[in-house]
Each structure stands twice: as structure tokens, then as C-alpha cells.
């Protein structure tokens, strides 16, 4: 099996690079959008609030596969044709935005009211208060959850196989189709996913403990 794995590894690694690239692009699109949605959900204007809630709830309720297919096969109906990479980025970016917005919202909500009052007393406007006082503290609280989400998005890149993106799973599947050695090549692909996810998960737990060092054991 090990000799085979040596043959498979180059194409699987190029697939892994594509998976990582897709995860990075989705997070780059999704995270800022998630923060924006978190602020929109608290907007005084109801139209803004409801639009944000609809985007968030749909992103959480609809399977990632359906969103990917909507972006890839659905959008051409209204004359928007995306490459499989862009379609996958749009689908996974939407999911990232939907889930991260709840995390940002909880983080921002955890910033004590006194911080808002102190900023007001110092004469900071609403925008400056959020930009320099509330958001930096809120993001710090939300960081472990956001990193956990980033790992889940990396796992979800495997779904882009269904729209023909040559990422890790589709490379493995192609090799399986040629060699009929599905078990061997899929096992290697699974191990490669685990080789990214497990250390990343351990790292996130480490960061979580470090950020919570000032808390009493019961609060952690």
C-alpha cells in the first residue's frame, strides 16, 4: 500500500493545495461579510435587519451542496456564469458568512455596556466606538469559534468535488476510477484531511486556553 501511496501523493497534494486555496478564498469572502451581517442584524432599520436575518438563516439551513449547485448550475439561468472555483467560493463564502455572523454577534454582545458608555464619555462617535473599542474586543472573544468554523469550511471544500473542482477528494476519486484501488487512495485522502484538521484543532484549543487564561476555571 505504501508504494502505491507514493505514486498517488503528488496529485493528492496538488488537490490538497486546491482545497486549502478554496478554504482560504471562502474565509476571505465570508468572514468580513459575517461581521457586516452581525452588525446589520442589530441595525435600527427593520428592512436591513430582516435582509440580514434572511441571508443568515438561509446560509445555515440550506445544505452546502445545494448552495454550491445553485452558484454553479443555477446562476447561469440569469446569465451569471462562474468557474467552479468561484462558484465554490461563493457557496462556501455564504455559509462562512452565515455561521460567523452569529459568532461575531455573540462576541460583540459580550463586550460590557460600560465600554460603550466610556467611549461615549470620551466623545467617540458610534463608528469610532465600534471600530476601535467594541469590535476588537468582540473579535477576540469570538476568535476560537471562528477558527473552529475555518476548520469546518476546510472540510466542506470536499463538496466542491461535485462541481468538478480538482480538489483533494476529486483527485482521489479520479485515481480510484483509473486504478479501481478506491480503498487505498481514499484512505490516503482521508489521512491528508485528518493531517490538516487534527493539528489545526489542537492549535485552536491551545489558543482558546491562552485567551481564557484570565478567567476562573469554572468560566472557561
Amino acid at each position: 500500500m505504501l508504494a502505491e501511496w507514493g505514486d498517488y501523493l503528488p496529485s493528492l497534494l496538488s488537490g490538497l493545495a486546491m482545497s486549502l486555496k478554496l478554504a482560504g478564498a471562502s474565509l476571505l469572502v465570508g468572514m468580513p461579510l459575517g461581521l457586516t451581517l452581525a452588525l446589520m442584524v442589530q441595525a435600527p432599520l427593520w428592512v436591513v435587519r430582516w435582509v440580514a436575518i434572511a441571508i443568515v438563516e438561509l446560509g445555515r439551513a440550506v445544505p452546502a451542496l445545494v448552495l454550491l449547485q445553485l452558484a454553479y448550475y443555477g446562476l447561469p439561468t440569469i446569465h451569471i456564469t462562474l468557474t467552479s472555483f468561484l462558484a465554490a467560493t461563493a457557496g462556501l463564502g455564504w455559509i462562512t458568512a452565515a455561521y460567523s455572523s452569529e459568532m461575531f454577534r455573540a462576541g460583540v454582545a459580550s463586550v460590557p455596556e460600560g465600554q460603550h458608555e466610556a467611549s461615549a464619555a470620551l466623545g467617540l462617535g458610534r463608528i469610532d466606538t465600534y471600530r476601535s473599542i467594541v469590535i476588537p474586543q468582540g473579535v477576540r472573544v469570538a476568535l476560537p469559534a471562528l477558527l473552529g468554523l475555518a476548520i469546518q469550511i476546510f472540510q466542506a471544500t470536499a463538496l466542491a468535488f461535485t462541481i468538478g473542482l480538482p480538489e483533494l477528494l476529486s483527485q482521489a476519486y479520479d485515481i480510484g476510477n483509473e486504478t479501481f484501488r478506491y480503498l487505498s487512495v481514499l484512505t490516503l485522502a482521508g489521512l491528508l484531511y485528518a493531517a490538516v484538521v487534527l493539528p489545526a484543532g489542537a492549535l485552536v484549543r491551545g489558543i482558546e486556553l491562552r485567551l481564557g487564561r484570565h478567567l476562573a476555571p469554572g468560566q472557561r
Binding site: 472540510q155 466542506a156 470536499a158 463538496l159 468535488f161 477528494l169 482521489a172 476519486y173 480510484g176 484501488r181 478506491y182 480503498l183 481514499l186 484512505t187 485522502a189 482521508g190 484531511y193 485528518a194 484538521v197 487534527l198 484543532g201
Partner: peptide, 22 residues
């Protein structure tokens, strides 16, 4: 538990469906 959660579900699905045929 860690391994089952680390590998994406679709990979497990393929392992069960295609892998077990061996």
C-alpha cells in the same frame, strides 16, 4: 472520535461505498 470528526463525511461515504467493494 477525533478521526471520525476530522475526515469530511463525504470521504467516509466514499470509503464505505467504493472502498468496501475491495
Amino acid at each position: 472520535i477525533d478521526l471520525l470528526r476530522a475526515v469530511p463525511p463525504i470521504v467516509w461515504l466514499f470509503l464505505v461505498f467504493f472502498g468496501l467493494t475491495e
